[in-house]
């Protein structure tokens, strides 16, 4: 097994190459629609990958992860609008406050098992949603945060310029995925897998299951919130839709479409779902019919995510190859 030990140098290399390619993309293919797509996919990739830390790696099926995406968007937007702080400060506020939210919600929810965990996370998300809708003076209610989010320059980065916004989004995404990758490949990451596969055995081996799950929940929450922040910067606002349960649903679909057994699967799923959505809404107003048919094809035909499928196919080929060699 090559991946038994974290291979930091290799991961950094891959991340650097990916980042370089993404940064070069606008020069090679100057198309604003593609730029916009990459920014949105960056936000969703962080969101979906962080959700997969819970679903795929720890076996905690959260139906309420959209809570963090929306919270991140609102926390960031409100910090910029109301406090008038710099973007790095607002970023820090978003990270800290979403960690706190994750700590509180996680501490209560983690005690519940299986589908009940799913439902309580959903309940908390909907509580947050109802609050956002009802607390009009702060959040703007159903209208969302209006009037735009100010984007003052910091450290030579001016996010009101499209090229800067693009570079910022892909950098945050690649850095975020790199950090998440290190987490899942660390001993802690393997602890989470053990909890997923056999919780009793894990606690028998002296692992504090509650603490490990809570840590995973908080980390996932923070990265989900960072995804929301990237989205808020892109649309220059925050909307209740981000906190609604449909957001959590989309996160789950991204994971399922992309594949939950590979690290890059959820990010791939974010790309697939976004492209599907864009292409289908361009082509027809009956997008439900088409999107539904495509999803059915995935679920009943492929029966797994795209990257799972590719990974299995590669493995089969390799096995066939080595058998042939012998």
């Amino acid at each position: 097994m090559l991946t038994a030990r974290p291979n930091l140098a290799r991961d950094i290399l891959i991340a650097a190459v990916a980042l370089a390619l993404l940064l070069l993309l606008p020069y090679v293919w100057p198309n604003k629609m593609i730029n916009d797509l990459v920014i949105r996919v960056s936000a969703f990739a962080l969101f979906a990958t962080s959700l997969n830390l819970l679903v795929g790696y720890t076996g905690m099926v959260s139906f309420g992860h959209g809570m963090f995406f929306g919270f991140g968007a609102y926390a960031f937007g409100l910090s910029m609008q109301r406090l008038g702080v710099s973007i790095p400060t607002a970023f820090l506020i978003t990270v800290l406050s979403s960690a706190l939210l994750g700590l509180v919600v996680g501490a209560i929810s983690i005690r519940l098992k299986d589908i009940y965990f799913s439902f309580i996370t959903l309940a908390f998300q909907m509580l947050l949603y109802s609050t956002v809708i009802a607390w009009v003076p702060l959040t703007g209610g159903d209208q969302g945060l209006m009037g735009g989010i100010p984007r003052p320059p910091f450290l030579g980065v001016d996010l009101s310029i499209e090229a800067h916004r693009y570079a910022f989004a892909v950098t945050v995404m690649v850095a975020g995925l790199l950090i998440l990758r290190q987490i899942v490949e660390s001993p802690f990451g393997y602890t989470l897998r053990m909890i997923r596969d056999n919780t009793e055995r894990a606690s028998f081996l002296g692992i504090n299951v509650f603490r490990a799950k809570l840590t995973a929940f908080v980390i996932a929450g923070v990265f989900g919130a960072i995804g929301g922040m990237v989205m808020a910067l892109f649309v220059s606002g925050a909307y209740p839709e981000f906190v609604n349960w449909t957001m959590s649903g989309e996160g789950i679909f991204m994971i399922m479409l992309g594949g939950l057994s590979t690290f890059i699967g959820p990010a791939a799923g974010a790309l697939i779902l976004s492209v599907l959505n864009d292409v289908i809404t361009r082509g027809t107003e009956h997008h439900g019919l088409f999107l539904g048919a495509v999803i059915l094809l995935f679920a009943l035909g492929l029966r797994k995510g795209v990257t799972d499928f590719i990974a299995d196919w590669l493995r089969l080929n390799r096995e066939a190859g080595s058998r042939g060699g012998n």
């Binding site: 099926v61 789950i252 994971i255 439900g288 019919l289 999803i295 995935f298």
Partner: peptide
């Protein structure tokens, strides 16, 4: 798993 069922249901809701 439950997520696959969710996916099938969601497709049906859309359709």
């Amino acid at each position: 798993n439950v997520l696959m069922q969710l996916l099938v249901c969601y497709a049906f809701i859309l359709i």
